[in-house]
């Protein structure tokens, strides 16, 4: 049996879920997962055998996603990824309100989304998440706390805005 396939395939559903939450597009999400798996296979021999495979894969996936955002942003003709531009159009938008957590997530910057998803949805420990982001655990904790504060505010606004509209 192929060792790489046996170890990687059980993790594909999680890689797809994180990719979808980040891209919010099914095709782009699977493109991202495919790139991640190709990269993982090409570096299979280089991975640390005692290391955490899941954290390693999420790190590859997240880095690929971040560099694709950067590439898009460098091209002047493409629209900025509003969610990744603090103070950008999305944040100033009057309708900045979210009726659920997934919608709210779209308004947060990439690193906030990543900690919320890896910790809250993918069940990575704080230490694993720190490894994925290549940051100290303390920084991850404060980022998580800021991300949750923003998420609460977005949903709060969304709820009151929604109520006002139905009245």
């Amino acid at each position: 049996m192929d060792e790489a396939a046996a170890l990687l395939e059980p993790l594909i559903p999680q890689l797809r879920r994180y990719a979808y939450a980040m891209t919010r597009d099914h095709e782009s999400a699977d493109d991202l997962v495919q790139d991640t798996l190709e990269r993982a296979l090409s570096r299979w021999a280089l991975r640390r055998r005692d290391g955490d495979l899941r954290a390693w894969l999420f790190a590859i996936e997240r880095n690929l996603h971040v560099s694709s955002i950067r590439t898009r942003r460098r091209r002047p003709e493409s629209a900025l990824d509003a969610a990744d531009e603090p103070g950008g159009p999305a944040t100033q938008e009057a309708g900045l309100a979210a009726r659920d957590a997934l919608e709210a997530l779209d308004h947060l910057p990439e690193d906030h989304r990543t900690v919320l998803l890896l910790v809250g949805v993918e069940d990575l420990t704080y230490e694993e998440t720190a490894r994925v982001l290549d940051l100290p655990v303390g920084t991850v904790m404060s980022r998580l706390s800021r991300a949750r504060t923003r998420l609460r505010a977005l949903i709060e606004t969304g709820r009151s805005g929604y109520l006002r509209r139905v009245k």
Binding site: R16, A101, L102, G120
Partner: peptide
């Protein structure tokens, strides 16, 4: 925070 985390999980559950 708890209910948002649960909400997020629920919204993304179909993907796994």
């Amino acid at each position: 925070d708890r209910s948002q985390r649960d909400d997020l999980r629920a919204r993304l559950a179909f993907k796994v």
